[in-house]
């Protein structure tokens, strides 16, 4: 398939899907809390309203960081869905995150400063797991290339069970849900006012929301990588995981950042490294 077609489909479809998923998320959350919840298209209404608001800034060029954050998230997702190198995807993802954090620092406000520090700790917490996921995928398919991984034709889950579980563990961090929503928290939860996004308003906030949709789709997309032979099974698992994360969000309280860091690294170490260790031993036994 032509790369440009995929690219354009990606850029148009992702915000739509992301927004719908976010709306669905809010409805499910509300129903779990015995409420009714907003209409399904509420996120789109929100974004439209935000674009119509006045733009207030605290420091010059703070919004530019967010624009670049969104830009590089689009680049990362495009890389991923067009079948690029997964390791590069992880690093580009980190780049996008860094722009976001730097934007938070730039606003020079106490709340966003703490938000940035905590976002940084979050990044440090999940980054090793992402790289280990890449390594695990390589060890089973001998390629870092997403296109190659998807053509592998055999189920990867049994061999990568540990890594999959570890990835699920850090998923709430990325999706900004409890118990790991340290820095800005998803919808309606306050966290040190609004954490890293405290000083962003109006159109920039809309961009942040859209950026979150892109992030969501990318993260969920990585789950499909574990099921290259049966994409429909992968999609089903994705839906199940999505629901699971929302359930966890509503059941757990937010943890302290020290606990988040320790728990994530411990999970990464035991599940991720353990999995790789087992895979290495299997490889040695086979050869």
């Amino acid at each position: 398939m032509n790369i440009f077609l995929i690219l354009i489909a990606y850029i148009i479809l992702t915000p739509l899907t992301g927004g719908l998923l976010t709306g669905l998320d809010r409805i499910i959350t509300a129903r779990m809390q015995s409420r009714i919840g907003p209409p399904l298209l509420q996120p789109f209404y929100d974004v439209a309203k935000l674009f119509s608001k006045e733009n207030l800034v605290v420091r010059k060029a703070q919004n530019l960081f967010i624009i670049f954050h969104l830009l590089f998230l689009i680049v990362t997702g495009a890389l991923f869905f067009c079948g690029g190198d997964f390791l590069l995807v992880v690093f580009a993802f980190a780049l996008a995150g860094v722009f976001f954090i730097l934007g938070g620092y730039r606003t020079s406000s106490p709340y966003s400063h703490i938000g940035s520090e905590r976002e940084l700790i979050q990044m440090m917490a999940y980054e090793p797991m992402l790289i280990i996921t890449a390594i695990g995928l390589y060890m089973t398919t001998h390629s870092f290339n997403v296109f190659d991984i998807m053509s592998a034709g055999k189920p990867l889950l049994p061999q990568l069970l540990g890594i999959f579980l570890g990835f699920l563990f850090i998923l709430p961090i990325k999706m900004r849900k409890s118990p790991f929503d340290l820095s800005m928290s998803h919808h309606a939860h306050q966290e040190l006012v609004k954490g890293i996004t405290t000083e962003f308003s109006g159109p920039t906030l809309a961009l942040l929301e859209i950026a979150h949709w892109f992030e969501l789709i990318l993260i969920l997309g990585i789950i499909i990588l574990f099921f290259p032979n049966n994409v429909w099974l992968g999609l089903a698992v994705e839906c199940a995981v999505f629901f699971l994360v929302i359930l966890v969000d509503n059941t757990f309280a937010r943890l302290r950042w020290q606990t988040v860091l320790k728990a994530s690294w411990l999970a990464t170490f035991i599940l991720g490294m353990g999995n790789i260790f087992i895979l290495s031993i299997l490889k040695i036994c086979h050869s």
């Binding site: 409420r35 919840g37 309203k49 306050q190 609004k194 962003f200």
Partner: peptide, 19 residues
């Protein structure tokens, strides 16, 4: 008493608020 069915959420930050 759910206001979110009108699409309203509570936020503590004036920069994010309309009302």
């Amino acid at each position: 008493y759910d206001v979110e069915r009108f699409g309203i959420i509570n936020t503590g930050n004036p920069k994010h608020a309309d009302i």
